[in-house]
Design a protein around this nucleic acid. Structure first.
Lengths: 343, 343
DNA sequence: CTGAAAGCGCTTACAG
DNA sequence: CTGAAAGCGCTTACAG
């Protein structure tokens, strides 16, 4: 088996044409219009032809050594197994590729020690900037990073005053409240997710506020924290029902948690939506396929990733940037059909 | 806001101690034992102390320029949104981090043109090798890549004689057949997945063979191809039922496809497991939480990713390597409970 | 418009 | 055991 052939270098191109490497470098890195400032039309044409013919590809390591910019971005997510974060990452990666940027992703599992360690690894790889999908409220980590002059943006979750691309989760929570109240539900339980994630916090705040506006108070025992996955939702729902019986509506801050809750309800013979409405968040493709199709809030996950990358690029360019808040949309399905009127 | 401070270089360390950069380089890159061949105990100690104190981190771009090895690996998957591939990637990334290797992942969406284009991008980033989770049988692409001397391994799907880390999918299919036949099912339908993926091909071959061994032939109209996701399973199941009525067992080559199939059955009022048993593949965490818990085949996805990375590292080292085939395990749940005896 | 040179931060034969 | 030098492939002031 033959070994991989050595890549074409600038020098090879230059020698073949009989010009200096600096000229080739300038022409290659210039736009069509500004190239004329660096070389004669004939030389430009010749260079472009040979570059195409020989399949020249710039060596990014060499360029980065010289320019001190790597074209690399580090992305931290709680876990890529989570469909939501995987989708956000797809958006990031898509936008990055369009801009000629490469990304490294890694899982922090939402553990602060991992966040710190993974970030240092990213920095040692000389990333130009970072995108965090796992920001924790109340942790000093991101503030310290900003203090050090490291450039980063947040996606999915907000934190402090750091630049972020998120969904308007408070509004998402309000949409759910309005829908549930309109369909006759009065005893609303919330699976609030992790206490350090702005997503869960804001979605919970949204539904609580909107219910209060309608004169309904959600008592503390109806708000249970837990993981954003099926087992997490299972556990949280079980705990809620144990503590105060089953409410007539459950809002899970995440589709997977909603599925976990439906598991508990099935085990206990509680009927959805007759006894209890269930609403999720994110409109995962599974939501529509479930034996009981799930009402949920659609959030623009892919777009969020794209916008996050764009924000980071702007930041690295030195632009003044504003956080982005995208609008959610309620998708009503069978799991929250109006309750049969009782008594 | 202060700008990020310049990283510490070898030269700074060397100057501080008063030795040559080459000495520092040798000591840093040597193991504890071999360092003694390159420097006196005193110098070694001094270097290590200053490296730790100043927080020196090797510039990987500079090192790679010199050594012609980037420590970078490219990973192509159909789609990271797919839980199965996300999990395999987690294994890859985990093993890579342990070895000081960085990975780039990208989605090919199983489109051959994308596979080619993405691979070229990876190569232009100077990756040392590639891992493909999206191999297509019958496409010449991988053969051509091998011909060019590019180093790579496959995960999840086999193809040709290329080195791979996979699950024994034929055995997985056989396990399902034995279980279904033992619980009285006779008319078995298969949602076979994509025709170019060895996973679906092998799982189908396994169940077909095992049924034939038991004297039961699965007719062609009972084998339907389709996507490995919920919508794909939905469509394929609908097509199968349309063509020949509902079988008494459906084996989907993937849990998500199984969920899609359950959606069709629900719509048509067909009961699971009374009318039809449903079995999936991969034992996704959702499987256990579904309103009708799903019987499925557990495949060691995370381990597969780890083994794939290990294989690639061995290959890059020039070792002779053998493909790895991991064992699947059947997990029985409610969706395939024995049918009530009819008539 | 084009060239020659310096230098980014490393590693690694080659000397001694 | 340690140093001095070359060079990986680029980019970019500095000249002309």
């Amino acid at each position: 088996m033959e070994s991989r052939s050595r890549p074409v270098t600038l020098r090879m191109i230059a020698d073949e044409i009989g010009v200096n490497v600096s000229t080739v470098s300038r022409v290659i890195n210039a736009s069509d219009t500004e190239a004329r400032r660096w070389a004669s039309g004939e030389v430009i044409e010749r260079i472009r032809a040979v570059v195409a013919e020989r399949g020249y590809q710039r060596n990014p390591q060499a360029a980065s050594l010289r320019t001190r910019r790597s074209g690399l971005v580090g992305v931290l997510v709680p876990r890529l197994q989570d469909y939501v974060l995987a989708t956000i990452y797809e958006g990031i990666e898509e936008a990055a590729t369009e801009q000629g940027i490469s990304t490294f992703v890694t899982n922090s599992l939402d553990v602060p020690a991992n966040q710190i360690a993974r970030t240092e690894i990213m920095l040692s790889r000389r990333v130009d900037g970072l995108i965090f999908g796992d920001a924790h409220t109340g942790e000093p980590f991101l503030d310290e990073l900003a203090e050090r002059g490291v450039k980063f943006v947040l996606v999915s979750r907000r934190a402090g005053n750091h630049v972020s691309a998120t969904c308007d989760d408070v509004m998402g929570g309000r949409l759910v409240a309005e829908h549930l109240l309109a369909s006759g539900r009065r005893d609303v339980g919330v699976l609030a997710g992790q206490p350090y994630a702005s997503t869960g916090i804001d979605r919970t705040a949204g539904i609580v506020q909107a219910c209060r506006d309608a004169g309904i108070d959600i008592p503390p025992h109806r708000i249970v924290q837990g993981g954003f996955d099926a087992p997490g939702g299972h556990e949280a729902a079980a705990q809620m029902i144990e503590a105060g019986g089953c409410p007539d509506a459950i809002f899970a801050a995440n589709d997977f948690a909603a599925i976990g809750a439906m598991g508990v309800l099935r085990e206990r013979g509680i009927s959805v939506p007759d006894d209890v409405a269930v609403v999720g968040y994110n409109d995962t493709p599974l939501a529509a396929e479930l034996p009981i199709p799930l009402t949920t809030v659609r959030s623009p996950m892919h777009e969020m990733g794209r916008r996050g990358l764009d924000l980071l690029v702007a930041l690295l360019r030195g632009d003044e940037v504003e956080s982005v808040r995208l609008a959610p949309e309620l998708v009503v399905r069978a799991s929250s059909a109006a309750a049969p009127s009782k008594m």
